[in-house]
Amino acid sequence: MKMQGLNHANIWRFKLTTATMTLIPAAVGINYVAKALAEGLKLPVWLGSLGTFLASMLAGPVAGAISGFINNVIYGLTLSPISTVYAITSIGIGVAVGVLHAKGWFSSASRVFVSALIIAIVSAVISTPLNVIFWGGQTGIAWGDSLFALLVANHAPVWLASFIDEFVLDILDKVCVAYLAFFIYRQLPQRMVRFFGDDQQ
């Protein structure tokens, strides 16, 4: 398999091949649809980073980071303007997934759990300052925000309360997305994995 051949030196090498160029918008589309499905089924998770995960796994951390960035910019310009600033979080997620995948941390079910934890921490660390700047620390998800309100009412610092609010949501979300991505990636035909992984024009 191609991915096992990747080592530390070359995961950052990036060239916008035509394959990557068409993969990234598809990844953004998958993010949208996964999010819509989660909302439709009233799941307590967003799943809105599934495509970013897959892009990172298929074409490396830079491709994943670009997918995440474009995802939030497009989302911001069409549906929810504030989500644009969370592009930074999405970039972080894309990079984290790409690095973990290249290092073999998506190779087994137990390793995926560790990856999910790390990705959730990355996500929450980047999101918390944004939550504080834009929403006074809230996340906009009811049960996370009730926790936030409870913590603030008990005089916890806003930063800590906001981080906990974000982290409890992120951990659940990222574990679900990581397992979905792990499962779907294994179902992808080899020709597809090779097509997007190849260094071609």
């Binding site: 598809a26 998958i30 397992y179």
Partner: peptide, 28 residues
């Protein structure tokens, strides 16, 4: 349960993801 719900979206999500990625290959 959440687990059941997640499992229930797999039959929709997997074909959709593969179809979308296939389309990207073709478009490329």
């Amino acid at each position: 349960t959440l687990m059941q719900k997640l499992k229930s979206i797999l039959p929709v999500l997997i074909p959709l993801v593969i179809k979308t990625l296939d389309q990207s290959m073709e478009r490329s």
